[in-house]
Write a protein that binds this DNA or RNA. Sequence first.
DNA 1: ATCTATTTGTGAAATTTGCCACAATAAAAC
DNA 2: GTTTTATTGTGGCAAATTTCACAAATAGAT
Lengths: 213, 213
Amino acid sequence: MSTIPTATISRLVTYLRILTTLENHGVKNTSSEQLAEEAQVSAFQVRKDLAYFGRFGTRGAGYTVPTLRRELRRILGLNRPWNVAIIGMGRLGQAIADYPHFEQYDFSLKACFDINPKVIGQTISSNHVYGMDALPQIVKEKGIDIGFLTVPQASAQDAADALVAAGIKGILNFAPVVINVPREVHVEPVDFLAGLKRVSFYIINPGLKEELA
Amino acid sequence: MSTIPTATISRLVTYLRILTTLENHGVKNTSSEQLAEEAQVSAFQVRKDLAYFGRFGTRGAGYTVPTLRRELRRILGLNRPWNVAIIGMGRLGQAIADYPHFEQYDFSLKACFDINPKVIGQTISSNHVYGMDALPQIVKEKGIDIGFLTVPQASAQDAADALVAAGIKGILNFAPVVINVPREVHVEPVDFLAGLKRVSFYIINPGLKEELA
DNA sequence: ATCTATTTGTGAAATTTGCCACAATAAAAC
DNA sequence: GTTTTATTGTGGCAAATTTCACAAATAGAT
Ligand SMILES: NC(=O)c1ccc[n+]([C@@H]2O[C@H](COP(=O)([O-])OP(=O)(O)OC[C@H]3O[C@@H](n4cnc5c(N)ncnc54)[C@H](O)[C@@H]3O)[C@@H](O)[C@H]2O)c1
Ligand SMILES: NC(=O)c1ccc[n+]([C@@H]2O[C@H](COP(=O)([O-])OP(=O)(O)OC[C@H]3O[C@@H](n4cnc5c(N)ncnc54)[C@H](O)[C@@H]3O)[C@@H](O)[C@H]2O)c1
């Protein structure tokens, strides 16, 4: 298990989602073939991705939906609660605070932060908004693991530094900029404008899309 | 120019953003070294990425910021206006309609759509909300190229089918599901929950992050 | 109990992507 | 005008990733 492709982790998330949908529909068994079709990858790929972590199927019969789902949740670390905080309670931060689907996945919004005195002290979706100076203490007290960075581009590095100093372990970066953090902190970009620009490129270069069977 | 890595396109978007920031700060010249540092990749990578599309620098001197920026905008297709529509005017759709930074990039929000009779006919951020039956006609009339898919997971495939039937060329998919479209339509996922789950994995597996110099 | 039909798990090949060294070349210094 | 310095552009190599073929194993049929 020396190294695992990033793309594999992304696909595991997709497989998990498909398994959840199957389970909700009462489906008991599945196969690499079915997962592959839903995820739009090859069946080889599904099996190879799973093989990085162990053996989860039975030859000739395929996979048991609840079992594989449980295993993938364990592999991805989703079988434990994660405490998250939002940094920057502007339009996007507020929209995310309103989003009800976290709890369903054992992600729990524990605190909100902003730098604007007019916003600090308000209550947004039944969450108190703290000032940035309270960050280290609240992170420690509430055991916050992950920060959602929803501040303007120009403030993103500063806010990220504050999160790192407070001892956060992962950052979901919504700002359209590459932020610099120590290696032990993991950053995932969620970059809407970048996606839009990629769409632009692929529309004007239709030939450059990789062929799919 | 047979095939260009997807990762290269993502990095070009990053380089463009860096160049825009540099230009706004009045910086006239730059180098693969500087771009590499800001983008957190190697200088080789920057030069290789650019080499797919031509020669843009002068040896010994580096790159001229406005020139390289203009070239990247051309390569990415950002030197022309793009007309976009939002499908699904719930919390996220509304937040995006409010987002003012589109115009700055020659992306123009031309129409909003929903399936809920209570929402249809409303005006959101000075955009009229149309019913889904109006999609084909409005897409044609207003020359809409790109659709933002912000409907619930369960409706995403249906709404995507409607977009495809209406003749849209690209989709930014905010729903947490893999949608199935013909090859000539390009889909970019913007998947917040998937990012969150990847963070979870990398927090519990700190050893699996690729080494960086 | 044996055979047949499936479908997984995996080593090896093929492909893709990234890395690196260095020749080419332009600007600056002298 | 020549030399020095700097930095790009690129061909070849290494590493990572995907694809593939097939042996191993299991469930179900006979
Ligand atoms: N609004 C959208 O639809 C949208 C979509 C995608 C990405 N984004 C990105 O998300 C980020 C936020 O966007 P927005 O529209 O919510 O912006 P916004 O201006 O509405 O909100 C930003 C908030 O961050 C706070 N802030 C600023 N500096 C801070 C700091 N150093 N520490 C803590 N808080 C700080 C501000 O007080 C403000 O409340 C931006 O980077 C934007 O590009 C927004
Ligand atoms: N709210 C967030 O912060 C957030 C963040 C990331 C991703 N998402 C994803 O974005 C999507 C939308 O989230 P939301 O919170 O805005 O949901 P929402 O329920 O508030 O809004 C969804 C809207 O889509 C409309 N709709 C439903 N089916 C439709 C159809 N077939 N055609 C057209 N319109 C249709 C509904 O009438 C509603 O107005 C979801 O897939 C969600 O998972 C939301």
